[in-house]
Nucleic acid binder design. Structure first.
Lengths: 246, 246
DNA sequence: CGAGGGTTTGAAGTGCATCAAATAGTGTGG
DNA sequence: CCACACTATTTGATGCACTTCAAACCCTCG
C-alpha cells in the first residue's frame, strides 16, 4: 500500500509540474527530471513551511489547501502579503536575490504541496533558457498584481477592498450574478486585506447595504456583479475584469 | 557642436549601460549593440514618459534627476508607487507579462535618461541567457523591497514611515549621525509614503520631538541614527540596515 | 451540554484626512 | 533690489475611518 501510494504521488507530481506555467514549453524529459527530485506532501493547518529570512532551499507548488505568506514584527504584529491556493507557485523567487525568503509561509487550510529543490530548478534553467523566460513572465505578471495591490491599500476603503476581493473570487465568466463561499476564515480575509476582524465585519455589512449583497455566514450571493464592480472599482485605476493571472 | 554633443552622448550611453546591473557579465560587444539602439535624452520636470496601460516599447535607465511611478484613478486620486533616481532601471518588466506598463512614469525633477528599445533587449536576451538571469536577479531583489513596502504601509504609522524613508537616504555607512537634504518636494515624499502633505508636516514634527531630529527646511540632521532606527524599525520585520539594492 | 474559537456588536479612542487659512519661499518682471 | 504672484509648507479646527477594548452571540465539536 505504501508503494502504491508513493507511486500515485510520483505520477501526480509530473502531471502537476507539466501544468505549471513555470514549465510551459519545456521538453517532457526536463519536467520529469524536476519531478524526480520533487516531492508531494501534505501538511496540517498551522504548519510553517518556512520562515522569513531563512535560507531558501526549495520552491512550492500548491495542489490543494491554502497557504499564507506573511511577515511578522518583533512585537507580534503581522502583515499578510498573500494567501494562495491550488495552482500557485511560491518561494521560487528566492533562487535569485539574496537567496533568503522575504516572507514566512504557513498552511492555513490542510494542504498538499509539491516541493522542488531550488538546485533542481537552477540546473533546468541552465539547460533550458526557456525556463528563465517563464519565470520572468510570471514575475512580471506578479509585479503588476503587486502594483495594483499597493494602489488598493492606498486608495480603497475597507468595503471597497472587500468588494474587490469578492469580485476576484468570481469566475469572471461575464456572469451577471454569482454565489460564492468564502474560502477561509473571515479573520484571515481581514488580515489579507489589511484590516481588523471587527472592521471586516462592519465593512461587509456596509457593503451589503450599499450593493445588495446577500450574506449568509460564509456564503455570499452577489445579485448584481456590475453594481458591485461599479462600487469598488471606482477607487482603482484598472477597469473591472482586472485579472491577469493567466 | 551638434556632432560633438551627439558623440559625447553616445559615449555616455555605453558606459552607463555597462555599469547597469542588467548588463553585468555581458560581453562588451553585446552592450555596444544595446547602446547603438539606445538614446540618451533630457526631459523637463512634468514630462510624462509613459502612461499606465500603454503598450511598452522601451525601458529606461535614470542618469540624472527623478521620476515618479504612479497610478491614477478616474476621479483623480493618485497612488505613488516609487520615486527613482540615478542608477535605477524601470519599464523593463513590461517586456514580459502583457506587454503594457502597469504604472505611469513622470519626470519630477529635470532628468536625463537612457532609453533602450525593448526589442533590442529581447534580442540580447535571446543570445545571452545571462541577461535573463540578471533580470531575474533584479526582479527578485525588487520583489523583496516590494514585500517590505507593503508591510510598511500596513504596520508603520506616519512618523515611522518618514523615519524609515530618512534612514534609507543615509549612506548606511555605519555612521552614528548624518546630515541630509531632501531630494524633492515634501509634498511628493508625502505621496510616496502614502500620506497627505499636512500629515507629513505634522508627522515630521512629531518625529523631531520623539527622536531629536533637527529640521531646517529641506535639510535634516540626524543626531543619533541608532535612536531613529530604534524608533522606526520596531514596526518592521527587518532589522535596521535593511537595504539590499546592491 | 459545555468549551472554545470565530464573528458580531457596542462604546470610546486614535490617526489620518479634510477644509480653511496663515506663513514661508521662490521666481518674475519692473 | 523690490514688490508681486505663485507655490510649498505649516498650522488650526473638525470630521471620518478604522482601531481598540469589552462583551455578547453563535456555531461547531468533543
Amino acid at each position: 500500500m505504501t508503494a502504491l501510494a508513493r507511486k500515485t504521488t510520483r505520477l501526480d507530481v509530473t502531471a502537476i509540474l507539466k501544468a505549471c506555467p513555470l514549465c510551459a514549453g519545456l521538453e517532457a524529459s526536463q519536467v520529469e527530471r524536476l519531478a524526480a527530485q520533487a516531492m508531494a506532501k501534505s501538511f496540517p493547518k498551522g504548519f510553517l513551511l518556512y520562515a522569513h529570512e531563512e535560507e531558501a532551499s526549495r520552491f512550492y507548488l500548491m495542489v490543494e489547501g491554502w497557504v499564507k505568506l506573511f511577515r511578522e514584527t518583533l512585537d507580534g504584529d503581522e502583515a499578510v502579503l498573500d494567501i494562495l491556493t491550488s495552482g500557485h507557485v511560491f518561494g521560487e523567487t528566492s533562487l535569485f536575490g539574496n537567496g533568503r525568503h522575504s516572507t514566512s509561509a504557513q498552511i492555513i487550510e490542510d494542504a498538499t504541496v509539491v516541493m522542488v529543490p531550488l538546485v533542481a530548478l537552477r540546473h533546468v534553467i541552465e539547460e533550458q533558457p526557456r525556463v528563465a523566460l517563464n519565470m520572468l513572465d510570471s514575475m512580471a505578471r506578479f509585479r503588476q498584481q503587486q502594483d495594483r495591490e499597493i494602489e488598493h491599500r492606498i486608495l480603497q476603503n475597507a468595503p471597497q477592498r472587500i468588494g474587490c476581493f469578492l469580485l476576484r473570487l468570481c469566475d469572471t465568466g461575464r456572469q451577471t450574478h454569482a454565489t460564492l463561499h468564502l474560502p477561509y476564515d473571515k479573520t484571515l480575509i481581514a488580515a489579507r486585506l489589511g484590516m481588523k476582524p471587527e472592521t471586516f465585519s462592519r465593512a461587509l455589512a456596509r457593503l451589503r447595504e450599499d450593493t445588495g449583497l446577500i450574506v449568509n455566514g460564509a456564503t455570499i450571493h452577489i445579485g448584481d456583479i456590475a453594481r458591485l464592480a461599479d462600487y469598488t472599482c471606482t477607487a482603482c485605476s484598472d477597469a473591472f475584469p482586472c485579472d491577469d493571472r493567466g
